[in-house]
Amino acid sequence: MSSRKQLSGVNNVMTQVRGWLYLLPALLFLIAFMVYPLIDVFVYSYQEGFNSASQTSFGIGLYNYKYILRDPYFLKAVKNTFILVIITVPVSTGLSLLISLGLSSIQKLKNMFQTIFFLPYVTNTLAVGLVFMILFRKTPYTDGLVNLLIGKFGISPIDFIDGPYWAKMLVLSIYVIWIVMPFKILILTSALASVPEVYYQSAKIDGTSSWRVFWRITLPMISPMIFYLVITGFIGAFKAYSDAVAIFGVNLNAADMNTIVGYVYDMLYGDGGGYPSYASAAAIVLFAIVLTITVINLIVSRKATDNT
């Protein structure tokens, strides 16, 4: 410690300058593309009638928020997003827990399974979405593979891509789940691997049933990670967008499948674009929702961990 003091005493000024100099590139990028935009997005959201061409606005107020909250497209996007979240978060978390439990109780082929299960993480969302589209699509020429499959159970063909609302929502949910599973399986498998073997051994000596072992040992030990996955799962699902584009194309409003993030980008750019104020207001509403849900999640998880 004393040698460090001596050294820094000798070239103290140099150290100060060097420190900031090394940090400078990162700092400049962060200020330009994160700190400034973060402040600016709030400014935009309160500027009424902002015109990007003349850089002028009528005044400051809540008009942008009022506008989007009355916009049927926004309300539709909110509804779609909530449905998507409510379906995908529990299903993907539960399914990944089952798969991780399965993975951690086998030795043979474990590596192979883990590798396969991780594949969706490294694929291009837009590219694979196209495959899902053709699997579920019904065209005049063919009913598509999925329809042929469910036809075996006596269900008549459904157009999952251009058809009824719930059919489209189902495809989107399946795709979102397919995409998010690798991360959850990975996290839960490593959480399960970190439960000390001693617990299981002593349970075995006591002759505890495996069901009891799961509820009394495994679940409490990995519950922090499950809560973590639920929280990040909510955040991620609320921000869903590329998955929907991958399956239904760029015009999500026409497909009736827009999400909140999709609404933000539509307001910003594209056919209905050019309204950064509306986009900002929508983005802030989205993050108010996400923040609220995250806080609720944290409170619930704290309560649950206290009880065990």
Binding site: M34, V35, P37, D40, Y44, I235, V261, S280, A283
Partner: peptide, 20 residues
């Protein structure tokens, strides 16, 4: 402060970045 920035979602800053 850097760590605090880690929590900022991309969707919030992308609007201004687009304009910039």
């Amino acid at each position: 402060m850097f760590l605090a920035l880690m929590m900022i979602p991309n969707e919030l800053v992308i609007i201004t970045n687009f304009v910039t």
